[in-house]
């Protein structure tokens, strides 16, 4: 099983992968190479059909790997709903232990429960962090919860570990009166979900006193793409006025989720994407119009191996400060208007 990506993984991917490849392509290439070095002879990966580059990764990786002399067997799962026969054939090929269909599903069930538990713990952490009165307490509670979930075996134990973790998180001393700025995070799924690739941005935002709302968690992505293809209907519908075309990746979702966040009254949105990510570049251009028409500030980050943490932190600090002053300004406007009974400002509720 692949390890968490590290600097070494990225160096490998950057060395052998194309310079302008997006971060996920480089990291996955580095992960394969590390796996091969640890003796793996088969790579199981996902395919895709475009229009963005993800779907072509496997074909390119294969050529690069054979170019450096490691001809490894690659099993590429194309989107199952549109490649049913192909998917079943590959499951059978990999199913050397000849597990029955039912037992495979039984195997998958706890894995999914575990992912669900991790997502729930993370959401609870994002809510607790800006309200904590003891610095780092929620982080510690979250880590404890994650450890318990990993230690649990079987769905029931995982559920118990999750409940215990959530209780721990909620019991950390918090200032319930706090009204932190709420920031929605949109963008490309890899850098949204892999904290190592976005320089632990959610933690930095939590430390700056912001409550982070992520538009995508692995579990709702799995439900979205694997089970129901193109599952992000509501985001795509919300994006229709600004970006009606499917531009690949999560470009449309970034736009739609920003519209939804604006309507939900969040204070700002951060767009995250790997450098040269095509759909997110289209989205960034369109988000300028969404930001103006829905008066919600949007900050975009295009990340790659040279993105510096210091630079990122300073931009985040400036953004959070701006949102705080904007939120305070809006609150003052409401109380002022209430006092002299004038038509209240259109306040973001």
């Amino acid at each position: 099983m692949p390890l968490e990506p590290t600097q070494r993984t990225l160096n490998l991917g950057t060395k052998y992968g194309p310079e302008f490849a997006c971060l996920p392509l480089k990291i996955t290439l580095g992960t394969y190479m590390e796996g091969i070095q640890r003796g793996a002879d088969t790579i199981v990966t996902s395919g895709g059909v475009g229009p963005c580059r993800a779907g072509y990764y496997s074909a390119l990786h294969k050529k690069i790997l054979s170019g450096v002399g490691c001809d490894v067997r690659m099993v590429v799962f194309e989107p199952p709903m549109s490649h049913k026969r192909d998917t079943l054939a590959k499951v059978k090929m990999l199913n050397s232990a000849h597990l029955s269909g039912l037992s495979i599903i039984e195997l998958l069930y706890p894995v999914y429960a575990e992912l669900l538990a991790l997502d729930h713990l993370e959401r609870a952490l994002r809510r607790a962090m800006p309200r904590e009165t003891v610095k780092g307490a929620s982080e510690a509670g979250y880590k404890k919860g994650v450890e318990m979930v990993f230690a649990a075996a079987g769905t029931r134990q995982i559920r118990e570990a999750e409940a215990e973790g959530l209780r721990l998180l909620r019991s950390t001393p918090q200032d319930e009166t706090a009204d932190p700025v709420r920031i929605g995070m949109v963008g490309e799924i890899y850098v949204l979900l892999e904290p190592a690739s976005n320089l632990y941005m959610e933690r930095v935002l939590g430390e700056l006193g912001a409550e982070v709302h992520k538009s995508m968690y692995l579990t709702n992505w799995i439900m979205g793409n694997v089970v129901v293809e193109g599952g992000g209907f509501s985001a795509r519908k919300a994006a229709a006025k600004y970006l009606p075309e499917m531009v690949g990746g999560h470009g449309q979702d970034s736009v739609g989720n920003t519209v939804i966040y604006a309507e939900q009254g969040l204070d700002g949105v951060i767009q995250l994407a790997p450098f040269t990510c095509i759909p997110e570049i289209v989205a960034k251009a369109v988000l300028a119009r969404v930001s103006e028409e829905h008066s919600i500030p949007v900050l975009s980050f295009f990340l790659d191996e040279q993105t510096g943490e210091a630079g990122m932190r300073t931009r985040l600090e400036a953004f959070v400060d701006m949102l705080k002053t904007r939120k305070a300004g809006a609150a003052r406007a409401v109380s002022a208007s209430r006092n002299n009974k004038r038509e209240p400002l259109r306040v973001i509720s």
């Binding site: 229009p51 075309e245 690949g248 990746g249 289209v282 251009a285």
Partner: peptide
């Protein structure tokens, strides 16, 4: 076409 062409009218309209 490249996704930038798929979204070109929307990008130009935005600015």
């Amino acid at each position: 076409f490249c996704p930038k062409f798929l979204g070109m009218p929307d990008m130009v309209r935005a600015s």
